[in-house]
Write a protein that binds this DNA or RNA. Sequence first.
DNA 1: AAAGTCTGCAACCGCTTTCTT
DNA 2: CAAGAAAGCGGTTGCAGACTT
Length: 328
Amino acid sequence: MGRSPCCDKNGLKKGPWTQEEDQKLMEYVQLHGPGNWRTLPKNAGLQRCGKSCRLRWTNYLRPDIKRGRFSFEEEETIIQLHSVLGNKWSAIAARLPGRTDNEIKNYWNTHIRKRLIRNGIDPVTHTPRLDLLDLSTMLNSAQFNLSNLLNLQTLVNPEVLKLATLLASSSNQENLEMILNNQMNQTLNPQTLVNTSLLAPSTQLLNQASHGQYFSPDMVDMNNLITNDQNLMPPDNHVIIPSVSTDHDQFSAPASDNASFQPSEIDNKYIQSFYFDSVLSTPMSSPTPLNSSSTLINSSSTDDDRETYCSMFKFDIPEGFEFDDFML
DNA sequence: AAAGTCTGCAACCGCTTTCTT
DNA sequence: CAAGAAAGCGGTTGCAGACTT
């Protein structure tokens, strides 16, 4: 059975709304409340179909709509919710007071989605795009071959494999193996990551971690994270492993034997922003002020260039997980 | 300065779900 | 329970303004 159109479109206006039309619609809704959209246009003296009126009201005229730029927290919320809910814009909008599904959808398509793609993250799966990586380097390795991988597959966290792949693409064999070997102990050891020298040490953070304290993903400025105590957040089932180059401006190649190591821009972004975050975390703290010396956010960055790093790597932290058990 | 291209967003379209009779 | 209407939803389009050549 075919569906009849929501209204007779003959003679009905389409396209942008005029101020006069907005006024009529607002006055009518304020007087009678929203709803009964089929009869509303006629009663309000509008040459529009009810559907158009409903859309105009819900997406634009509603008094509780928050207009203007999305805040950092809102953006983070959208990304996190999208990683769980997918394109359920109305469900996402329900968690963002004052924002409409249409607005969130538009913002996703025009800003967030592009940014994720630019950073090598699949906006659908929220995981790094392996097609961007050089798998051949890893697979051709004599020391690290496919059969080893297969033997490990039940033990290795797939997300860590992705990181490992990334590192492999940078020809850093030794560090890669260290990470994978530690994965055989079921969980990623932050000390090991740091010891690889791919990830410069943060003594302060490691001390905190070794005492079983976790950090919320204050994701933007990893440099601040290690230099500023107040950025270390209270336990919240979060772990961050900050991976900050020693000079803060350029990713450091391991010394001596790997002088040709040239990480790509994507490598830098991934590695420097590597952190763990449970998917359904509690709302995040306010972001750390951007540091102009950071590779991620530098002096030439505009507001629009605020990079989005959440949801890149997600790990569930097992209950009762203790870092002490895994310290070297 | 003009033409072409890009970008962001409001609005529309059509399908699905929910409600009403 | 079924049919029809209304509402909800997500994908897509069209256009105005910004930007680039």
